[in-house]
């Protein structure tokens, strides 16, 4: 492993993008930072600025009003970057997807991978903090292999 890959693997900075979720995943991301899990052990720190981040954690169904903001936030991240979709809503729309299955609901602009490329999916409603850390590590491994 070269210095480049090592550095990327060792210091993934994450950015949390709340995209019309119910907050459940958001507080689990906050909980993943708490002393019980403490991802700073492995170099993961939360940064509130997409320009400083390597990995974006996206939660929620991404309402239509949110789509341009999410796109722009993603564009603001310098390469290499990775995206982790957290929770059922971000992956498919989850409980907010209408029954008839003829596509997303009238308000839903996502799932996330329809808007921006997603690297890791973390199912759960919400996923446990461990699962989120697991997802971040997987994303960091993907990130380290990028050019």
């Amino acid at each position: 492993m070269g210095l480049k890959q090592k550095a990327r693997l060792y210091s993934p900075w994450v950015f949390h993008a709340h995209c019309s979720g119910c907050n459940g995943c958001g507080i689990e991301i906050a909980a993943a930072l708490n002393p019980r899990y403490d991802p700073e052990r492995i170099g993961v720190t939360l940064h509130n600025n997409p320009r400083h981040a390597d990995i974006m954690l996206v939660e929620g169904i991404v309402a239509k009003q949110h789509v341009p903001f999410l796109k722009r936030t993603y564009e603001q991240m310098p390469t290499p970057k990775a995206v982790v979709a957290i929770g059922s809503c971000a992956i498919t729309g989850g409980v907010f997807k209408p029954d008839d299955d003829k596509g997303p609901s009238y308000t839903q602009g996502g799932p996330v991978d329809r808007i921006i490329p997603v690297d890791v999916y973390v199912p759960g409603c919400p996923p446990k903090p461990e699962a989120i850390i697991d997802g971040i590590i997987k994303a960091a491994i993907i990130l380290s292999k990028r050019d």
């Binding site: 019309s20 979720g21 119910c22 929620g60 169904i61 309402a63 009003q65 949110h66 903001f69 907010f96 209408p98 609901s105 009238y106 308000t107 839903q108």
Partner: peptide
Amino acid sequence: GFNHRGVMKL
């Protein structure tokens, strides 16, 4: 309006 999920409609 950024978090609208249409819960009441659903």
